[in-house]
Computed example of a mutant assay.
Amino acid sequence: MIDLHLIGIGTGNPEHLTLAAITTMNDADLILLPRKGDRKSDLIDLRRLICETALTGATRVVEFDLPERSADLPYIDAVHGWHDAIAEAWAAQIAAHLPSGGKLALLVWGDPSLYDSTLRIAERLIVGGMDMRIRVVPGITSIQALTAAHAIPLNTLASPVLITTGRRLREEGWPDAADTLVVMLDGDCSFQSLPPEGITIWWGAYLGMPQEALVQGALTDVGGTIAETRAALRRQHGWIMDVYLMRRSLT
């Protein structure tokens, strides 16, 4: 039996760890850390720092190479194939390091329930016949870190919030269901596809980390600044994690 613990670790700051996350990490027999290539070496370094900060016992930490997603297939097909490959990589690590079972932990950016595929990948292992129990330790999400950094509430009074992706924003425009949007997984600054009048945006990258970057204002005034800043930061660091909230005036 494998007890798989998916631990939300926030946005890269070790201080984002909850007490439950620290306890679960120390109770684990094994923590797997994925490597994503040289240009994203900061990500493995952050996970290493989190382990160095939180671990006080004999938990083993093993690094492995994460498969890359195909750039030649349609998006959904590429993601499904990628998830299959990651599940196979996990299974290989489990067979090598926990052949008799035990407690395995994976560190998930933000929270495992929000725009993250770790739970879907874990389901592939169960379908494949592995005897596994899945437990989730919730973490601070990028949305929480964003609203805290800008000191704003997530919603307006008695109004809903819609969380979406950059791809859907580009393809479908602003949905009618909400006056507040949170946009994740947007490498193309898709807010530029919207008529900017009457929209306020709060953007943040590397939230909670030393290189944190924040921009807020009317989209007509700061949209170009955000796009330029994002591109410059990605060139500088080789990777970027960002998120933004937009609010539309209804008057």
Rank of each mutant, 00 (worst) to 15 (best):
T53H: 15
R35H: 12
E123F: 03
R120T: 07
P74Y: 02
R234V: 10
S70R: 10
T53K: 15
P195K: 07
G223S: 15
A148C: 12
D65S: 13
A149N: 10
L219N: 04
A205V: 09
T24R: 13
R168N: 12
V127I: 13
R248C: 08
A58S: 15
G166E: 02
M184H: 05
L4P: 00
P175V: 03
R35I: 08
G102P: 01
L219A: 08
T11V: 10
A145L: 02
G37K: 10
R168G: 04
V137W: 03
D65C: 06
G198N: 01
P67V: 02
R168I: 13
I226K: 00
I199V: 15
L43F: 02
L17W: 06
D42F: 10
W82P: 05
A87P: 01
T164S: 10
M1I: 06
A231Q: 14
M130L: 15
P160Q: 14
A58I: 08
L114A: 05
G110T: 05
A122D: 08
R35P: 00
R167G: 00
T23E: 15
E52S: 15
A122R: 07
V222C: 08
I143C: 10
W239G: 00
S117K: 02
R170E: 14
D111C: 11
M184E: 01
W109D: 01
T53L: 11
E63C: 05
V136W: 08
A95G: 12
T180W: 11
W174V: 04
I240C: 10
S100W: 04
A78F: 03
A205D: 06
H16M: 11
W202I: 01
T118P: 01
R48F: 10
T225H: 11
G166T: 07
Q211K: 08
I31L: 11
W109H: 02
S41N: 13
I226P: 00
S41W: 06
T164N: 02
D188A: 12
V161L: 10
C51I: 08
D242L: 07
G187T: 11
I50E: 00
D221M: 06
L233Q: 13
R47G: 00
L6E: 01
W203E: 06
L4I: 09
G208C: 00
G10A: 10
V182M: 08
V62I: 14
E228W: 03
D45K: 12
L233C: 10
P34Q: 02
L233N: 08
T164W: 01
P160I: 14
V79G: 04
Q93G: 11
W90V: 01
I121R: 05
I31S: 05
Q144G: 13
G198D: 08
G198P: 01
A149V: 09
D186C: 08
V108A: 01
L119Q: 09
E63T: 09
I121V: 15
G204W: 01
P138Y: 04
A227V: 02
V61L: 03
I9N: 03
A21D: 02
A91F: 09
D3E: 14
I152N: 05
L66E: 14
G57H: 13
T24C: 14
T118R: 01
T225A: 12
